[in-house]
Nucleic acid binder design. Sequence first.
DNA 1: GGCATGTGTATTTTT
DNA 2: TACACATGCC
Length: 698
Amino acid sequence: MASPWLEELNPAQRQAVTHGDGPLLIVAGAGTGKTKTLACRVAQLIDRGVAPERILLLTFTRRAADEMLTRAGRLIGETGGVKVWGGTFHAVANRLLRIHGSAVNLPSDFTVMDESDSADLMNLIRTDLGVAKTERRFPRKNTLVKIYSHTVNAQRPLREVLEIHFPWCGEDIEGIAQIFERYVRRKQEQHVLDYDDLLLFWSALCSTRRVGEKVADQFEHILVDEYQDTNTLQAEILRGMRKRHKNLTVVGDDAQSIYSFRAATIRNILDFPSQFPGTTVVTLEQNYRSTQPILAASNAVMAPARERYTKELWSTRRSEVKPQLVTCLDEARQTDNVCQNILAHLEQGTPLMRQAVLFRAGHHSAVLEVELARRNIPFHKFGGLKFIEAAHIKDMLAFLRILENPFDEISWFRVLQLFEGVGPRTAQRIMDALQVRRPSPAPAPLQGKGRGEGSPLARLLTAPPTMPPAARKMLQELRDAFAYCRGIGDSPSTLPKDEPPLTLQVERVRKFYDPLFERIYENPAVRSRDLDQLAMIATRYRSRGRFITDLTLDPPRATSDLAQPPFLEEDWLTLSTIHSAKGCEWSVVHIIHAADGMIPSDMAVRDEAGVDEERRLFYVAMTRAKDMLYVYFPLRYYHRRYGLGDAHNYAQLTRFLPPPACALFVKQSVHVSVEDETALEPSGDCATYDRVNRLWRD
DNA sequence: GGCATGTGTATTTTT
DNA sequence: TACACATGCC
């Protein structure tokens, strides 16, 4: 019982770790050793005799789960982690539903689609219904998905969601409802689940009598990380899983809730004690990460926030070094200065690995990326456009998905349109001929993964549909590729054998796809490297289904844009959206574009709640820093829409750094005193900037 | 009729 | 840059 690692914990951490049964809420401020505490608690439970497979650890990313479990494993002397159920809500839902799906009428062979697939399906239906033809412009596919997802995850009526979050779509409620209804039916026909369905079905599973209890009882303890970023549906799942056992630990920080756009609600954490009577609340306030000056500035930013658990982070890490607020003339100067500071720290002994540049939106780093590449500073970018979203990756996956689930409409629709002379209309016609749409709702379970005579894939191989002349040769090649992957061989009369290994299938599909791909896309060379990487990932898998699902639920988080493949470099810099930086820390952090309109994003300032969340976002960014924090603010933003004019706007410093907060920074100005900008004193305080900037703003 | 191609525009954050 | 919509070509 007297585990040596307990000695290393502070009293609050130890209380959380050794807490016995019953609901436990750990309010853990930034940098207070949350990961450590959670890992120790898992280790402690196992030490106490709880079987690892009876523990469920829900985290925000798979990486976070792996990290914690490895750590817990190390504590109890298990190398390679412990066999705890760990992962995101979505991944765990997938795993449970593969086993128990039949209890909620789910076919066992369902495939999972990502958000852009959902959007494509929405669009298909949107076009079918002809709603786009009306005079008023109808919500676009991405908006439709957002509305749908928000409605499901928040478990609120559509009308209310529209009123509050999408007021400009309110008039189209009937059309939207109609589309949603069809969307649900189409997914059902295809045996396809979207992200939201995974949660929805898990929740449904909980309320089935026999299986629901069995699934819930399987876990003696459930632990949830980043609880402030869970939504109503996820809270409902937890309630469903905890009807009998009350052993539930949630960890979170309301000050770091930044996912309301995904229907996460701060209410989950604020109301946890009343949702789960008898909750013990433990608050972790000692910050081990940041120096006191960085913490002071962060606290000052959060001070004006409204409802929250009161806690004031403190640190024993004294330092004389204040964070720096760097005012730059424009983005070019900002970029230049960021590079200089990064290199300076590198020379003083802080490797790139321990530095990061953070920003609000994925594209905010575009200019910097070019400059880093020019200066041969290796970097790795997280967040923003993802690998999996790239059109050519989606194409490749579409082939594999058809093999996995021949009723996957979106994949057929995508693949067919790659052929010359085939657009949406012809693609639809071919899909009709192949009977990709199953008569709905499909009561008979699909036999042997659609391998039977009745599958659209089988029909493609035995009775090819008519194609526009330009596409006929290609069609034959597609049939050959599919036949190969199915293990049918070159002669169509041969009976199916076992399918070849996944890597060979990927290779074969690629052999077919490469020429198409070179015709369609601008810079095939760059994109081709992505395909190599996809093939690399595939080598880690034996099952095609698992490969596709894993890629959908846990896609590679970084893109290797302009830089050399970073994994070949010894040392590289992190570029990250603030959202993707959650849970991470670096010695030196550079926050760029700290201008109003960027942080907070002007997309988010419609209401007070939006501004509050942006404030938390800025707070999250600041509290990633251990030793040194830079906040950069470009004064001018050029709008280069038409050529290279020098038309520009003057930006204002982010509203989250009013004078009291500003006072906690060292002010520095870069190149602001050229030409007539002399009015901006190099070391002037923020109030002065504000006053001066107002001159240009109206 | 339906596809390819050109033009304008809006553009957050992610499982 | 990707998407929606308009135009011109087969």
